[in-house]
Simulated assay, not measured.
Amino acid sequence: MRALAIAATGMNAQTQNLEVIANNIANINTTAFKRSRAEFTDLIYQAERLQGVSNRGQNSVVPEGAQIGLGVRTAAIRPLNIQGSLTNTGNQLDLAVSGRGWFQVSSPGGETLYARAGSFSTNATGQIVTSDGYQVLPTIVVPNNTTAITVSQTGLVSATIGGQTNPQQIGQLTLANFVNEAGLMALGGNLFQPTAASGPAVTGVPGDPGFGQISQGYLEASNVDPVSEISSMIAAQRAYEMNSKVVEAASSMAGTISNLRVS
């Protein structure tokens, strides 16, 4: 009975939907996390009677036909790259991007990765790095005797060195943009990798047309809306229950046929 298989695809789709919602809720306090949304599409259709063909070879044409859908599948899990709210931390190396743009990070293998999370610090040699120790690009080294670091909205990094009154420029942060941000591959650890779907990175100075600005002393919060996620979770649960009812009904009908055969 096809209804069993069709309902099974619906239950599988809602299971994946719930997994996406669960990941959103789990990362509700993850810096710069972008929530995702599961998107579905119907499967192929089985034609019992084709529309538009002649009726029994006569001039009359079948107006509608009969097609039975075979279920649903997950088409995509779309990240929603909506700006999260900015939280004031007071940390001089906490940086947030207001608008479009990604920080550039060097992986241990030398590959350039991308991140929205700007919770940076310095390593033993004074280089600005991520919380996992990955070097921020372009490389910026903070002198040992620095008393204060200033990052402008355009990404200009200056350091006030002990014994001096005027800050000196020590580097320039740049941002990267992508034609299709949804095409980036999430690697975990707030890091992303470009793919053929995202297109290559286009770098620029913060504040330039198409690029966001840097806010020093702030972090971008997750854009997860708890109320929306709870509503989506309830909807997924109800849809799963309805599909399970279809399975029960189809199983009961199949059992009725089996009993008729026995009798």
Rank of each mutant, 00 (worst) to 15 (best):
M1D: 11
A5D: 12
A5W: 15
A7H: 00
T9I: 06
T9E: 05
M11D: 00
Q16C: 09
L18R: 07
E19T: 14
I21R: 01
I21Q: 11
I25Q: 00
N27A: 02
N27S: 02
N29H: 02
N29D: 11
T31H: 06
T31F: 08
K34E: 09
S36I: 07
F40A: 07
L43P: 04
Y45K: 12
Q46A: 10
A47W: 07
R49Q: 13
R49I: 03
L50F: 15
Q51A: 15
V53Y: 11
V53F: 08
S54L: 11
N59D: 11
V61S: 05
P63F: 09
A66C: 02
A66I: 15
I68F: 12
V72F: 05
T74Y: 04
L80C: 04
G84S: 03
N88T: 08
N88E: 13
T89K: 10
Q92S: 10
L93Y: 06
S98M: 13
F103G: 15
Q104F: 00
Q104M: 09
S107M: 09
G110D: 01
L113F: 03
A115F: 04
A117E: 08
F120D: 05
S121Y: 03
S121V: 05
T122N: 08
T122P: 00
G126T: 01
V129I: 05
V129G: 08
Q135L: 11
P143T: 11
N145M: 10
T147Q: 15
T147F: 02
I149W: 07
S152L: 09
S152G: 07
T154R: 12
G155H: 00
L156M: 15
V157R: 04
T160R: 14
T160N: 13
G162N: 10
G163I: 05
P167R: 07
I170D: 04
Q172C: 03
Q172A: 03
Q172D: 08
L173M: 09
T174R: 09
L175T: 04
A176E: 02
A176G: 08
N177W: 06
V179K: 15
V179T: 14
N180Y: 13
A182T: 14
A182R: 07
L184A: 05
A186K: 15
A186H: 14
G188I: 06
N190P: 08
T195I: 04
T195W: 10
T195Y: 11
T195R: 06
A197S: 13
S198K: 01
G199D: 08
P200V: 06
A201L: 00
P206V: 06
G207V: 07
D208R: 14
P209E: 02
Q213L: 12
I214D: 10
Q216N: 06
Y218M: 11
E220N: 04
A221Q: 13
N223G: 10
V224I: 01
V224G: 00
D225G: 03
P226S: 01
P226Y: 01
S228V: 04
E229L: 04
I230S: 01
I230L: 13
S232K: 07
M233Y: 00
A236F: 01
A236P: 01
R238Q: 09
A239C: 03
Y240D: 00
E241F: 07
N243S: 03
S244H: 05
S244F: 05
E248W: 09
M253E: 07
M253N: 11
M253D: 04
A254N: 10
A254M: 14
S258P: 01
S258A: 14
L260K: 04
V262A: 13
S263F: 10
